[in-house]
Write a protein that binds this DNA or RNA. Structure first.
Length: 382
RNA sequence: GGGCAGGUGGCGGAGUAGACAAACGCACGAGACUGUAAAUCUCGCGGCCUGACGGCCUUCGUAGGUGCAAAUCCUACCCUGCCCA
């Protein structure tokens, strides 16, 4: 399933490939989230063009709408959304946290599972680890995630530890259910997905180590770092990765969940041996006007991004782009940069033209994947 | 020529004597977003001073007037829309 093609001799970076029911994808990889069976604003043809090798969907969202039975009836998630390449499904563990914050009480956690109130119709749904795994199998995704509790970055250690222990119990339950379903699928000739376990522990290094020890004692096909901290608090994230990387089975892929808001974060993390990541931000901030720009350079120091803009981002809604006839990024090979100016994108954005969303999303995702290509190239050359 | 309605910030539009630099919306300016409740949300938006609280000045067609106090009342004029000649 996971094969390491080349290990960098400079750092922890490595090239690999993962074989799934829907073909092979290469690592390191950025996976665009398409939560509701759609990468917002773009279609499978665009995904193909920008070079997306694998995307994400979310089991909880698809359970609420249109329902896993419906997707199964319609021929599985790939056929349903017209995407032929690998698809990873998240379990809904993230929503246990995200739907409970901001004072909204759309989710409630107890040891058995999580009660979700659908943001769409207010209906109550109770998801257990077993249920999440069942949904993910029914949907037909290639890689599935255990049901976990995404721990907050700013919470007291005692709560985070309790939450981590719960995630551990849920990991065991998820795995057990997974193995049960694999048996059933074997008998019916259906192909089974790979299952990744999720490590928690918040921002605390000792808890993270404890979590790695437990989760990697279970036989998962890959391991993931979860929690609000990952990707959000980059300084802590890098510390955590450095701490836990040696403790994870080296022949298994490592996935940093929710990481990749800025291409610079991806560079740091690949260096430290992370193989997979995803983040809603490249697409979301694109829709909100923020676009990546800057030269991607490979040198003896590795991959770097050179840009005069703050964080390598411009906000296309700003008045200073009204007359700017340059593409978003001069070096970019995406459809948007090849054909349209900043001025045109500014015009589309200001007038809320739907085309803006597609062009902006294509660019940011392609930019991210161009950074990935540079990172692969860099490892290849070491 | 007569009748009626009306003229408020870039636009639309509240307010009809004191709590008005003036609701709300749009436009505009800026910011946020991290396993997607997100084509969303937040802030600013007459001028000047202040880090902020706040303070000062100038504004509701124009010019006068009444009154402690006027975008709000009175008078004249200008302009716009509709109706009648």
């Amino acid at each position: 399933m996971f094969k390491i093609i080349k290990q960098s001799n400079k750092d922890q970076g490595r090239l690999g490939e993962i074989t799934t029911n829907h073909g092979i994808f290469h690592t390191p990889i950025f996976m665009p989230p398409g939560t509701l069976a759609s990468v917002k604003a773009i279609g499978p043809d665009d995904l193909e063009t920008i070079g997306a090798e694998i995307i994400l969907v979310n089991a909880l969202h698809l359970h609420l709408r249109p329902g896993e039975e419906m997707i199964e009836y319609l021929g599985g998630i790939h056929k349903f959304m017209g995407f032929k390449k690998p698809i990873l499904s998240d379990s809904g563990g993230f929503q246990a946290w995200s739907l409970s914050k901001k004072g909204s009480k759309l989710s409630k956690i107890n040891d058995d599972g999580v009660e979700f109130k659908s943001p769409w119709d207010g209906n109550i749904h109770f998801i257990t680890p077993e249920k999440a795994i069942e949904i993910e199998h029914k949907i037909g995704s290639d890689i599935i995630m255990t049901f976990d509790e995404c721990s907050p970055d700013n919470s007291d250690k005692d709560y985070i530890r309790q939450s981590m222990l719960r995630t551990h119990r849920w990991a065991e339950r998820s795995l057990k259910e997974h193995q049960k379903l694999i048996e059933q699928e074997k008998n019916s000739g259906k192909k089974s997905p790979l299952l990744f376990g999720i490590i928690q522990g918040g921002p605390f290094l000792d808890l993270r180590k404890e979590s790695v020890k437990f989760i990697s004692s279970l036989s998962f096909d890959g391991y993931a770092l979860g929690g609000e901290t990952i990707g959000y608090n980059m300084k802590k994230t890098l510390e955590i990765i450095e701490e836990i990387k040696p403790l994870i089975p080296q022949d298994k892929p490592l996935y940093a969940m929710g990481l990749g808001s800025n291409p610079r974060d991806v560079i740091e993390v690949v260096k430290r041996g992370v193989d997979m990541f995803d983040c809603v931000n490249p697409a979301r901030i694109a829709r909100h006007g923020d676009l990546y720009t800057g030269k991607i350079i490979i040198s003896s120091k590795g991959v770097e991004i050179e840009s005069e803009e703050k964080e390598g981002i411009i906000n296309i809604s700003n008045s200073r782009y009204r007359k700017d006839n340059k593409p978003i990024d001069e070096d970019c090979d995406c459809y948007t940069c090849k054909n349209f100016s900043r001025a045109y994108l500014n015009h589309l954005y200001l007038n809320k033209e739907p085309l803006y969303l597609r062009l902006a999303t294509i660019h940011n995702l392609r930019y991210m994947l161009r950074v990935i290509n540079a990172l692969r190239e860099n490892i290849k050359n070491t």
